[in-house]
């Protein structure tokens, strides 16, 4: 049978019974073995010839990967086996509106029946739509490695396009997003080539909250997709929003600082210059909309 894309290359599907076995198998067979969750990045890359693993290790049956729960102290924990649609449909996830909005922007409904937030994170694409929200909510990854369980904060996890701090044998079981500040507002603005279902040319994750410890009385967390080798946190822009009376001029200054800090590339979806301008305009829009929500 001929098709536009070739079939999947040969590999062995492995479904380990336990975590210890899984981590050991992955470590022993690195780099020929690769873990997967939804497979929506992995299969495409294999068809395109970028990955050629000898073993694909399905993590979805492993202990700790099927969790989707809220805890009043710890926050929201989302397992590696939980597809994005289930997160969106989980009533308690509405306490994390930025995450829900970002997850709904990914691909199509049927792709989100398989695609996971953990896969989006581990894939470490600078364009990953849900990564910014997980950064803004100060997510922590729960991992099982050859030496047992460990945690890693998401901030600092990304080391380059497609690269992260995971070592051979490491399996991300879940992510925990701590209880968000009361009364916060979020906004994800995704600029794609069409209104729905494209990868982002630029993606702005913004979260803001009233905060008496800052000069402005507000605290903002920002993260920007598709403008740097890794998901980008514009620290200077966040500082400007914390340290100056929050009016139109301050927001313009912060948006300009974000534009100056990003280092996008030209690619099929947009030029570097266009991306820079869009960062300025959309950071401005996201922060303005959050201020409106916070004062409503």
């Amino acid at each position: 049978m001929t098709s536009a894309h070739p079939g999947l290359p040969e590999f062995d599907y492995v479904k380990p019974a336990g975590l210890k076995e899984a981590s050991q198998f992955l470590a022993q067979h690195a780099p020929e073995a690769r873990p997967f969750s939804g497979g929506t990045d992995t299969f495409v890359r294999m068809r395109d010839g970028f990955f050629n693993p000898k073993y694909l290790v399905d993590v979805k049956g492993l202990e700790g990967t099927r969790v989707l729960k809220i805890d009043e102290k710890e926050g929201l924990t989302i397992g590696a086996a939980i597809p994005m649609n289930r997160v969106v449909a989980f009533a308690e996830a509405s306490r994390y509106p930025l995450l829900v909005e970002a997850a709904k922007s990914v691909a199509s409904y049927q792709l989100r029946s398989r695609a996971t937030i953990i896969g989006n994170i581990c894939n470490a694409s600078p364009a990953g739509d849900t990564i910014g929200a997980c950064l803004a909510y100060q997510g922590v990854l729960n991992i099982h490695g050859v030496d047992g369980p460990k945690t890693l904060p998401l901030n600092g996890f990304f080391t380059g396009p497609g690269k992260n701090l995971l070592k051979p044998g490491d399996i991300v079981l879940s992510i925990t997003l701590p209880v968000p500040p009361k009364g916060h507002a979020g906004r994800y603005i995704k600029l794609g080539r069409n209104r729905l279902s494209d990868l982002s040319i630029v993606g702005i994750s913004a979260m803001g909250v009233k905060d008496s410890s800052t000069k402005s009385g507000y605290k903002f967390h920002l993260a920007i997709a598709s403008v740097a080798p890794v998901p980008f946190i514009p620290a200077k822009a966040e500082e400007i929003l914390a340290n100056n009376a929050l009016n139109t001029e301050t927001i313009i200054l912060a948006a300009q600082a974000a534009m100056d800090a990003v280092t996008p590339i030209d690619d099929v979806r947009g030029s570097a210059q266009y991306r820079k301008f869009m960062v300025r305009n959309l950071v401005n829009r996201a922060v303005t909309e959050i201020m409106q929500k916070l004062s409503a």
Binding site: H5, P6, G38, F43, N85, A107, S108, Q110, L111, R114
Partner: peptide, 24 residues
């Protein structure tokens, strides 16, 4: 497309639509 883009292969898996080209 065999890449999760076109949806021609959509079927229900336990009642939820999936791209059957993206499921083993």
């Amino acid at each position: 497309c065999a890449a999760g883009e076109c949806g021609a292969c959509t079927v229900m898996l336990n009642g939820e639509p999936v791209n059957s080209c993206m499921v083993l």
